[in-house]
């Protein structure tokens, strides 16, 4: 087994790790926080707070 074959297995393992990290965190967040809070972002609120479009 040469270095490239080992790297192939390592790439699969790391891919699975990153996928697991993201999915487990998403499940944790979705079960910890209320969905209304998670989807509470509003486009205009940020804009209105930052600057007023008047001359």
């Amino acid at each position: 087994m040469d270095i490239w074959t080992i790297l192939e297995y390592a790439a699969w393992a790391l891919s699975a790790l990153f996928a697991l990290l993201m999915l487990s965190d998403m499940v944790r967040i979705d079960t910890t926080y209320d969905n209304d809070l998670l989807t509470s972002s509003r486009e205009g609120e940020i804009e209105a707070a930052a600057e007023r479009h008047t001359l």
């Binding site: 790297l7 790439a11 790391l14 891919s15 990153f18 993201m22």
Partner: peptide, 13 residues
């Protein structure tokens, strides 16, 4: 394939 998948997964993470 494993390197393609790793690229996408790492950057998504």
């Amino acid at each position: 394939q494993p390197f393609i998948v790793l690229c996408v997964m790492f950057l998504a993470w």
